Computed example of a mutant assay.
Amino acid sequence: MQKFIGTGVALVTPFKEDKSVDFDALVRLVKFNIENGINYLVINGTTGESATITKEEKKEIIEVIAKTNNKRLPLVLGVGGNNTADVVNELQTADLSHIDAILSVSPYYSKPTQEGLYQHFKAIAQASPKPIILYNVPGRTSKNMEPATTLRLANNFENVIAVKEAGNNVQQYLELIKNKPADFLIISGDDDLALNVVLAGASGVISVIGQAFPKEFSSLIKLGLEGKNKEAYRLHYKLMDMIGLIFSENNPSGIKAVLNKLNITSDEVRLPLVKATDELQGKIADFVDNF
């Protein structure tokens, strides 16, 4: 449980100009985050463009990250979808030897009821050999997993250890924090709200912006966990405009534009995503130059 307190980052998948995976850039990105205070790494999430990554690429991405990491930080792997049987099969057949926990997104597109969401995650909990972090992101799935459903899963399954809550809803965060089991972690999936909810009692964040500014963002969350509000908000305000910029068009095009400016990765994305516009790239470049 302690492994996932603090700042995790949802890693991008770097691409070359021909759209193949740029493993050299991936190594640079992982080292940059390890060396600058990040607490754990998340592989193959939304920010990693999991929807357009093949099974073969996913396997190699895991191997490269695990080798680079060399057991220094915990690794979380995205394993989710709206076909429950496929998710269960992946959990039962994949090599998870390098993985410390699973991040499983709430089913998208199908729009199940709350009971459907519960039964989906019940099947995953019963199949998973690794601890599970639930992932609620209604802006992408089109269906909110209500606090009562999250808390029902938390109370009924010991291996459901946390939720990455990304509803951008302060009231929902507070309800989860207020009513959660003592050892259940509430992890922010909203970079703009992360400090606020940490100060309210959340356990940290799985961040997008954190991989470009790992030292500053991990320090911000650490200060929040220590209750050092003024110092934490000083860093929050320093990063606030950039957080808005990277999500203004789509994710991960925004964060890839930042990482490109920092000479860590290219800004290439796979269709149907497209690169950040010239206007956004200019604003990002100005921010980085004056940071």
Rank of each mutant, 00 (worst) to 15 (best):
N168K: 15
L185K: 01
N196G: 05
P181D: 12
I177C: 00
F157K: 07
E175K: 06
A166H: 04
T150P: 08
L174R: 12
L151P: 01
A194K: 02
F184C: 04
K164L: 04
F157R: 06
Q171E: 15
T149Y: 00
L151C: 06
R152F: 00
L193H: 10
L153A: 07
P181T: 12
L151W: 02
G167R: 09
L176M: 06
S188W: 13
Q171H: 14
G167V: 07
F184I: 07
E175T: 14
L176C: 02
T149C: 12
V160W: 01
Q172V: 11
A194P: 06
V160R: 04
Q171I: 14
K164W: 07
I177E: 00
L195K: 08
A182Y: 05
L153C: 08
N169C: 10
A194C: 09
N155H: 14
G189E: 13
P147G: 02
L195D: 02
I187G: 04
A154I: 10
L174A: 13
D192R: 12
L185I: 03
R152H: 09
L185G: 04
L185N: 02
L174C: 13
V160A: 00
A154R: 06
L153G: 09
Q172E: 15
A162W: 01
A154N: 03
G189S: 09
N155E: 15
F184A: 01
L176F: 08
F184S: 03
V197T: 08
D192A: 14
L174H: 11
N159G: 09
L193T: 11
A154G: 09
D191G: 09
K164C: 06
P147M: 01
L153F: 12
N155F: 09
L151T: 06
R152Q: 06
N168H: 14
P181K: 08
K164V: 05
F157A: 10
L185P: 03
A154L: 04
I161L: 06
A182W: 08
N179M: 11
L193D: 11
E158N: 15
K178Q: 15
D190K: 01
P147Y: 07
D191C: 03
N169D: 15
E158S: 15
L174G: 04
L176W: 03
L176R: 04
N159H: 04
A182P: 06
